[in-house]
Simulated assay, not measured.
Amino acid sequence: LPEFRDQVRLHRRKIRELFGLRTVTFRNTELIYNNAVAREVERLGYRVVLAEGADRILGWRSPNFVYQPAGCHKLRLLLKNYRLSDDVAFRFSNRAWSEYPLTAEKFAAWIHQANAAGEVINLFMDFETFGEHQWEDTGIFEFLRFLPRAVLTHPDFRFQTPAEAAMQYTPVAQLDVPQFVSWADVERDLTAWRGNDMQQDALATLYGLEQRVRQSRNPQLLHTWRQLQTSDHFYYMCTKWFADGDVHKYFNPYPSPYDAYVNYMNVLSDFTRRLEGGRKRSR
């Protein structure tokens, strides 16, 4: 938890430095979320938290409402509408998809259809969706160009920031999420990063260095150690197959998850030697 808090504060400070704004909405890495994360986020002073609208946490409920996290008093919870979000993020250029091609007008019509069964529609996707996952020649930028106009043809719709939307509506229910949920893979849990022995070994080794890193009082070593926490390192070690495996392979710069693990552990070994060298010089 101390490391989590430190990184959140660093990010908040950077946002203020770059944009002059105090952040009030929290989005965790890969939308990783549970009750404990929500409570910590509230303690850090945030007013809104974003999470995946996974079926297993919603049950019969809809992601198109504002919720309150279990155990929190002021924090509001906004959930990703994963079906509509994934239509753009993953299916947009899929010629085998029954709805291909996806036009701005068609997508706006789907959004409008949700008007009678919700108050907010949260579309969450990676920045790299636009131009990397979906290349320019797919028409993704033209889609984005015309989408706002198509959505706003309906008088009941407007665009808002997460904080604006969350504050406008009263939470319809308290949502209890004891287990971790994320936006990754079919399971929408943490198995994309810690689902096999290689990932767990790498994570245990990395976090096992925390005390020594902090005791070194070396800002550069601390910065490097934090960079080694980047979730992609562990994502590349995932050994899932079938549909999820295809997604992992698409983003993986290594020939295999095993190569990713070996390379990472070699880097970690080198970092450990640097850490030991720094400690000896400081004595």
Rank of each mutant, 00 (worst) to 15 (best):
S98W: 08
S98P: 06
E99I: 04
E99A: 13
Y100R: 02
Y100D: 00
P101C: 06
P101Y: 03
A104C: 05
K106E: 08
F107I: 01
W110Y: 08
I111A: 11
I111Q: 04
H112T: 09
H112R: 11
N115S: 12
N115L: 10
A116V: 04
G118A: 05
I121W: 00
N122T: 12
F124K: 02
M125H: 06
M125R: 10
D126A: 10
E128H: 03
T129Y: 07
T129V: 05
F130M: 02
F130E: 02
E132T: 14
E132Y: 13
H133R: 15
W135I: 15
E136K: 11
T138R: 04
T138S: 15
T138K: 05
G139L: 08
I140S: 03
F141D: 00
F141E: 00
E142L: 09
E142D: 13
F143W: 05
L144Y: 12
R145P: 02
R145H: 13
R145A: 03
R145N: 08
F146C: 08
F146L: 15
L147T: 09
L147C: 14
R149H: 13
A150S: 14
A150Y: 14
A150M: 11
A150N: 08
V151M: 10
V151P: 08
V151C: 11
L152W: 02
L152C: 08
T153V: 11
T153P: 02
T153F: 09
H154V: 03
D156N: 12
F157H: 15
F159S: 05
T161N: 08
T161D: 07
T161S: 13
P162E: 12
A165C: 07
A165S: 07
A165G: 09
A166I: 12
Q168M: 11
Q168V: 00
T170S: 12
P171Y: 09
V172E: 05
A173P: 05
Q174A: 11
L175A: 03
L175C: 05
L175E: 04
V177I: 12
V177E: 05
F180Q: 15
V181W: 01
A184K: 06
V186L: 04
V186M: 06
E187V: 10
E187P: 07
E187C: 09
R188I: 00
D189S: 11
T191H: 11
T191W: 01
A192P: 06
W193L: 14
R194Y: 08
R194C: 07
G195A: 09
G195R: 01
M198G: 02
Q199G: 01
Q199L: 03
Q199V: 06
Q200D: 06
D201R: 13
D201H: 15
A202Y: 01
A202M: 01
L203G: 03
L203M: 14
L206M: 11
Q211D: 13
R212E: 11
V213G: 06
R214Y: 15
R214C: 04
R214D: 10
